[in-house]
Nucleic acid binder design. Structure first.
Lengths: 192, 192
DNA sequence: AGTTATCTACCTAGCGATAGATAGGCACTA
DNA sequence: TAGTGCCTATCTATCGCTAGGTAGATAACT
């Protein structure tokens, strides 16, 4: 992996493994051998496996929101904000050929260590907040409508990634993206 | 659990456990103690853990499609079909307070035994086929449009369940359901 | 007698985690 | 500058436990 320090390499490898098969499907030994150290050395950097999961999720969320940038900068056309948002998910899926970390963790949330589950919820909360802000800043949408649309966008993208990966059809994600654009238009300029 | 035979009880318990935390988060001993037998007896009914997963997924899919009924019976209003479809997901989420089995399995598909992954894909394929048929039978929608809408509906519902469960807000699922209805209307009666 | 469903007892492999040792680097000081 | 102590990052070895899976006995029903 391309991380600088060993600590970051551990996070890189763990993130890839979780996104591939979930939190309960990797071991500290798996991670260790992938970065070329022993499992005891992994525990030097992260006392427990839960600590690895928490660090991975926190880093993932920070990176994701940093890439999104300021949601207040969209003026006039909410479709711009949505297109940018969708594109970040698209890159996540296509570049890595992996799901969103928090789609995976969200699906197994009942069996996660508490701190990992907490960071997963934070990812969703922060994403919904970003979308709401971006939508209200760029349109005359009411707060309630922005909220409803934000929730739907996030849900459809997370679900779309799962379907796309499971059925191994990139087209499925594009399909969801197109429909989101249509929905966005319908909400911004309703017929009635 | 309410299953009749021990074999069915095993499937009931395993299904609940997978839907709570994923395929890699339960053990044959967990299942055994929950149904009041020993793990060796579980292996009598299902030689391997993968066999349990496959049987759970196959049964789940069959039951789900049976509950949906004939997709050809909807005439005149696709919203009826969509409402019924959404309602089955709603019940799945609210009654059991658990995700759709295949949302969970789809999220960890990279780490599933082959046959479990295969049955998971089959769930998605059969659901998409049902939706397509229901949409084309009840509207003048083109095959391509029915396909696009079907994919979006399934993706949004699976993703919506994950969000709803993770954030512990039933309202999120209802939100997604409402937006799906709106999207459905926009597709059936486009403005242009 | 054969079939079905369960048990006890066990195996091997792997898990997360810990203890204790070591090698190298950095920094202060006699 | 040689010596000291400490820190970082890693190692080997091991602990206690759990995993999935198996062998063989037992009991009950048909």
């Amino acid at each position: 992996m391309e991380g600088n320090t060993k600590r970051e390499e551990i996070l890189d490898v763990a993130e890839a493994m979780i996104r591939n098969a979930g939190f309960n499907a990797f071991s500290t030994r798996d991670v260790a051998s992938a970065v070329g150290i022993k499992s005891a050395s992994v525990h030097y950097h992260f006392p427990t496996k839960a600590d690895i999961g928490a660090a991975v999720t926190e880093r993932y969320t920070d990176r994701f929101l940093k890439q999104l940038g300021d949601p207040g900068r969209f003026k006039g056309d909410p479709r711009e904000a949505v297109a940018l948002y969708v594109n970040l998910f698209r890159e996540t899926l296509v570049r890595d050929d992996k799901l969103c970390l928090c789609a995976v963790l969200g699906a197994e949330i009942g069996g996660l260590p508490l701190e990992v589950g907490g960071h997963t919820r934070t990812f969703f909360d922060r994403n919904l907040a970003w979308l709401k802000k971006a939508l209200t800043a760029s349109s005359k949408m009411s707060a309630a409508e922005a909220n409803a649309l934000a929730v739907h966008i996030l849900a459809a993208l997370e679900g779309g990634m799962i379907l796309s990966k499971a059925l191994d059809k990139e087209k499925i994600f594009e399909n969801v993206a197109t429909m989101l654009k249509r929905l966005c238009e319908a909400v911004v300029a309703p017929r009635r």
